[in-house]
Nucleic acid binder design. Structure first.
Length: 428
RNA sequence: GGAGGGGUGACCGAGUGGUCGAAGGUGCUCGCCUGGAAAGCGAGUGUGCCGUUUUCGCGGUACCGAGGGUUCGAAUCCCUCCCCCUCCGCCA
């Protein structure tokens, strides 16, 4: 959510953001400012009426205490018209506030000046590529073939039991998942994150806080009977942990890491890119969340990026870093990097992490504030998050990139203490 | 799921219709005291919104879990919902 004051003072900047992100119409800003005008006028009128009412009520109280009931009655008679006025103005204010709230929620975050302007993924900037793509003197198999050959993943039975995109992992596949979980969490903890286990369902208020509602509601599954949403990312419960709180300056920064499954409806996805583990309805992820002082958030973004990248480095996977353009970044973000891992058999880059600075956009919705000095007015914090990392595509890349001529898979050394085995498909 | 108790400021905790944004305490800030500290003493210390103001600020209004209602007037009375605690039931 944007600050109304920003919209009032820099309407053109907001309109530019709407255009750059390709969301909503620029008229939104004008409509919003009109509603704001109406709202403020109504509030002023209402408060004047309330002041009169308070004054009269106080007089009545005084008169009654002095036993001057007749005089009190005379004043009470005057109040009935005022009562109606107040009722009417209250309704007006409420209507205007609701209208305004709905409009404000449609305004996306302003992109940071360093973000390239663009319309779609083709305009994202490849900032840097890391590691060497593996070369094979045989035809490398895609991960779904490798997973089937070694019985690591069973999508068919997952589809039977639940539906497509809900995999079973078994044997070394399951153990590898568990190894990734511990590997990522241990690394995050060593890098200064507090480990957390979060609820996997959230209420609508939380989904609104991080920006999944109202605009991205078809991303999530929902449980209408109890008014819950299975989380599409642990960002939602973890960031909402501090919702409606005023932290002291000493409490900042807060850094949390958590493992969770994530559920996404992925409505409208289809085609060859969804094969195997490329796109699932349920997947596992370690998420990193930072809540920081506003002056620190871009330094924190760099650190967060380094945290995510270091995990890929440790796994020896080739990857590249993309700076997302205005048209391809999300509604809530001010600046986003994507990390994409090289998938050697598919010969594609697969997104395994998205690292974002939301500045105060989420914090304003969630009312997460901090007090700069003991007696000072509270101010909004900045929030950031990044995957560290998403499992399925990491798994896909591990299988594809590390496959051997005999079809076995050599795992990177960093994982050995976690898996308890060094390879898949030999010495079994 | 059943029965009972309860949700008040950063925290604890008074307050059952008017002068209550709310006693008292703790914490915190500033000052006094001290060689320094503790203790003690004094003053201050909520948030949002609207208006006003070049700054400090000032005026108004709302907020005592949420939403509705009664009343000239609600933290206080009534209704609905949410959450927490205790006991019972069920259960990993």
């Amino acid at each position: 959510m944007l600050d109304l004051d920003t919209v009032r003072t820099h309407p053109r900047r907001v309109q530019e953001a709407l255009r750059a992100k390709g969301t909503g119409s620029p008229d939104l800003v004008d409509t919003l400012l009109e509603v704001d005008e109406t709202r403020r006028r109504a509030i002023t009128e209402l408060q004047e009426a309330q002041a009169r009412q308070n004054d009269l009520s106080q007089q009545i109280g005084t008169l009654k205490r002095e036993g001057k009931d007749a005089e009190a009655e005379a004043i009470i008679e005057q109040t009935s018209a005022l009562k109606e006025t107040i009722k009417r103005l209250e309704d007006e204010v409420q209507a205007a506030e609701e209208k305004q709230e709905a409009l404000v929620l449609k305004l996306p975050n302003l992109p940071h000046p360093s973000v390239p302007v663009g319309t779609d993924e083709d305009d994202n900037e490849v900032e840097e590529t890391f590691g060497e793509k593996p070369a094979f003197d045989f035809e490398p198999a895609p991960h779904w073939d490798l997973a089937a050959r070694h019985a690591l993943v069973d999508l068919e039975r997952g589809a039977k039991v639940t539906g497509s995109g809900f995999p079973f992992y078994l044997g070394k596949g399951a153990r590898l998942q568990r190894a990734l979980l511990n590997f990522f969490l241990d690394r995050a903890r060593e890098r200064g994150y507090t480990e957390m286990q979060a609820p996997l369902f959230v209420n609508p208020e939380s989904a609104k806080g991080t920006g999944q509602l109202p605009d991205k509601d078809d991303l999530m599954y929902d449980i209408p009977r109890d008014d819950f949403y299975p989380i599409p990312t642990a960002e939602v419960p973890v960031t909402n942990f501090h919702r409606d709180e005023i932290l002291s300056a000493d409490d900042l920064p807060r850094q949390y890491c958590t493992y969770s499954p994530c559920w996404r409806r992925e409505a409208g996805s289809y085609g060859a890119d969804v094969r195997g583990l490329n796109r699932l309805h349920q997947f596992d992820k370690v998420e990193l969340v930072r809540i920081v002082h506003p002056d620190e958030s871009y330094r924190a973004l760099d650190e967060l990026l380094a945290d995510a990248e270091s995990a890929l480095d440790a796994l020896g996977l080739p990857y590249r870093r993309l700076l997302m353009c205005t048209g391809d970044m999300g509604f809530t973000q001010a600046k986003v990097y994507d990390l994409e891992v090289w998938s050697a058999a598919q010969e594609r880059w697969l997104e395994v992490s998205s690292v974002s600075n939301f500045e105060a956009f989420q914090a304003r919705r969630m009312q997460i504030r901090y007090r700069p000095e003991p007696e000072a007015k509270p101010e909004l914090v900045h929030t950031l998050n990044g995957s560290g990392l998403a499992f399925p595509r990491v798994l896909a890349a591990l299988l594809e990139n590390n496959q051997q001529p005999d079809g076995s898979i050599e795992l990177p050394e960093a994982l050995h203490p976690y898996t308890g085995f060094a390879r898949i498909g030999r010495d079994e």
